[in-house]
Structure formats: C-alpha cells, structure tokens
Amino acid sequence: MEKIDIAEVKRLASLSALEFDEKSLEKFVGDFENILNMVGEIQKCDTSKVEIKRACHDFDELRDDEAKEGISQEEVLLNSPKSRKGCFAVPQMLEE
C-alpha cells in the first residue's frame, strides 16, 4: 500500500503548478491514498511476457513540408488576458 506524506503532495503540487491550503491538503492526502490503493492493483498483474506494440506509421505517410498561412495575429491574441505590440505579455521575468 502506497503511503503518501504531505511533503510528497507538496512536491506534486509544485510540479502541477497548484496550491492547496492546509485543510484541503489533509483531505487530499486521504483521497489520494485511496486512489493509489485502487490504482496499485495493477502491480499484481504479471506482465513479464507482454510486448508493448505502439501505433506506428511509415516515414512516407508523414506530412509534406508545405508552408501554409496560419491565423492572424489578431486571432492569435483573441483570448489573451494581456497583450502588447502583437505579443502575449506577462510581468517582466528576471533574465536568467
């Protein structure tokens, strides 16, 4: 049975770009453990002889390299929460 601690949930939250307050965090841990227990069932399955087949297509079926007009700058920015001079804009980032 997979045990999950608060630190692990915080690590996942950081990867997920999500925040949880302390109260919801506790409920979350409980739910999460239940889910992991259900999901953990797959560990019991013997897959040693299984050969995974991936959907594949041939090189020749790939898209030809023809350039086409996309959508206009105005359409690109249609739903943008903030834009400036044809660009999406965010608060200035420190150059790294």
């Binding site: 949930v9 996942l12 979350f28 739910d31 999460f32």
Partner: peptide, 10 residues
C-alpha cells in the same frame, strides 16, 4: 486538481 496531481505522481 486531483487528476493532475495523480498524473504527475505516476
């Protein structure tokens, strides 16, 4: 949120 977290876990 739960599924995003679960996805990141696996």
């Amino acid at each position: 949120k739960r599924r995003i977290m679960l996805g990141n876990f696996v």
